[in-house]
């Protein structure tokens, strides 16, 4: 660590040369993209129906929920936090909304989505409060709330599932309808990306999230309200989980107590593949989306390549570990090249 702070040269003359190297930071996204393309080509050779419009659309639809959650998780990770409760929040919001729509058929889909977001937001707010106001470590706070929300979901469901016949057509239609041939889920995900892109890159609050994650101490000195930011990211995460709860239930036309159990790990894995640092401060939207896409492709490609179901987890683990280690190794190589160029 001492080396890191000291390795930048004092002379400003080096600045020009290094700024070119800084451009290599994009390498990560490019590498991930190249990997995805290679994988896609590989699968395509094994199964020609892989890169058909229909299958690509299916993949996009199936990845939409994961990628929406990954966007929220990225913000949480950027602030040096983690949220293990999103699967439970998703289930709770999905279950409650499903119960509402099954009880009153006239409930408009838009209202259902808003209700879901509302429920998720409240769940996220509680976690944000625990983390920001009481200083509970995120991993512990969300672990505890994961248990609690999951318990609530079971209690609310009373052991019953809400099935498709109980849901009005309009509600199921949220996830199955399409505009101009593109599934609504994909459109919602695109909308979230664009909103997130604007929020992260072009608003003060968005940048403050990165500031808090990059250096909480100086954020305080700059007058950034750290607590507000923390509450905000967990609330956003909760809101997105709530939204995904509705989308999930609508997509699968069924609400269960154990919906999305363990899903948080896939979401975190997508973020990690996308290059979000657990240590906070850095994480790019493009990377996270690519990470989610990679996981989506793996989920879709492995069954299509007729890989034994028993090998799927092992392959998934190897790819994640390999990608993470490769990325670290590439970064080191870049740094070393950089050192070699320095004159002594």
């Amino acid at each position: 660590m001492a080396v890191h702070t000291a390795n930048a040269p004092a002379a400003e003359s080096a600045a020009k040369k290094e700024s070119k190297l800084a451009g290599l930071a994009k390498f990560r996204e490019l590498g991930l993209l190249a990997f995805i393309l290679l994988l896609a080509i590989g699968v395509q050779i094994r199964n020609p129906s892989f890169l058909t419009i229909e299958n690509v659309m299916d993949m996009a639809t199936n990845t939409a929920i994961l990628s929406i959650l990954a966007v929220g998780m990225m913000l949480v990770l950027v602030t040096r936090g983690i949220d293990l409760s999103i699967g439970a929040t998703l289930a709770l919001s999905g279950m409650l909304v499903a119960q509402i729509v099954s009880a009153s058929a006239g409930f408009s889909p838009l209202l259902a989505v808003i209700t879901g977001i509302g429920i998720g937001t409240v769940c996220g707010l509680v976690i944000g409060g625990l983390v920001a106001w009481l200083g509970v470590l995120p991993i512990i706070a969300t672990l505890a709330m994961m248990n609690i929300y999951r318990g609530f979901t079971y209690m609310a469901s009373d052991g019953k599932w809400i099935s498709s016949y109980q849901m009005p057509e309009s509600f199921v239609g949220i996830a199955t309808s399409s505009v101009l041939g593109i599934n609504t889920l994909i459109l919602i995900a695109l909308f979230i990306y664009i909103a997130a892109y604007y929020f992260i890159g072009h608003t003060r609050t968005g940048r403050q999230i990165y500031a808090v994650g990059s250096n909480p101490e100086s954020a305080k000195v700059t007058g950034i309200n750290e607590k507000k930011i923390l509450i905000l990211v967990y609330t956003l995460m909760g809101g997105l989980s709530g939204l995904c709860g509705v989308l999930w239930v609508s997509k699968f036309a069924s609400a269960q107590g154990d919906t999305a159990s363990g899903y948080e790990l896939s979401v975190i894995a997508a973020c990690i593949l996308g290059g979000v640092s657990i240590a906070g401060g850095s994480g790019k939207l493009s990377g996270v989306i690519l990470g989610a896409v990679l996981i989506g492709i793996l989920n879709n490609a492995l069954p299509m390549m007729d890989v034994s179901p028993f090998w799927q987890k092992g392959i998934e683990g190897t790819i994640i570990l390999g990608a993470v280690l490769l990325n670290a190794a590439v970064k080191r190589g870049v740094e070393r090249n950089h050192l070699l160029r320095r004159r002594i």
Binding site: E54, N62, T259, P303
Partner: peptide, 23 residues
Amino acid sequence: VKVAYGDDLRDKSVSETEALLKT
């Protein structure tokens, strides 16, 4: 032609079904 496993998970069962239809 195939025995697929959806693990009793909604999302996995859906993608397994889709894979069946395409393969």
